[in-house]
């Protein structure tokens, strides 16, 4: 089944895993997703290959951004009434703390879904969600609108 067909399925835990498996870069980063009540929790497992600062050591800031962008995209798909692959327009990322070499988590909220555009905010943390390592905002273009 193609990714485009797959995303039409309800976003339960199994489907989220299947979505992620279809995206080579998400597989490369090792991103996982879990359904927590109404929320989806995204997980970036700590991995030495992702280190950007070997002295701390800390995960590469760009990788934290990439993880958050992927989380935002899948969160949006999971919330769409007629799921389709959205296209990212822009991404704005604030770094608050270094992401140490351990698991990083992300959760998203769909701030607004209009007819053509969706706005998603993303929170990424390690110890607890009240002390984020980074926060971000993404705009997506929704496909299939004339």
């Amino acid at each position: 089944m193609s990714l485009a067909e797959l995303i039409k399925r309800a976003p339960d835990a199994d489907t989220l895993a299947l979505w992620l498996e279809k995206i080579p870069y998400a597989v490369y980063l090792g991103i996982r997703a879990e359904v927590r009540g109404e929320d989806i929790l995204f997980i970036l497992p700590g991995d030495k290959k992702l280190i950007g600062n070997p002295t701390l050591p800390a995960i590469h800031g760009g990788v934290v951004g990439a993880f958050m962008e992927q989380a935002a995209g899948l969160h949006l798909v999971a919330r769409m009434t007629a799921p389709a692959l959205p296209k990212i327009i822009n991404f704005s990322l604030d770094y608050l703390r270094p992401a140490r070499l351990r698991d990083t988590y992300a959760s998203c909220s769909l701030t607004r879904q209009g007819r053509q555009i969706a706005n998603v905010s993303i929170n990424a943390w390690q110890d607890n969600s009240e002390t984020p390592v980074a926060i971000a905002r993404a705009h997506f273009l929704l496909p299939g609108v004339d």
């Binding site: 990788v63 951004g65 990439a66 990212i88 991404f91």
Partner: peptide, 9 residues
């Protein structure tokens, strides 16, 4: 290529 990989670069 994934938008996230561009973010890294």
């Amino acid at each position: 290529i994934h938008g996230g990989a561009l973010t890294v670069l």
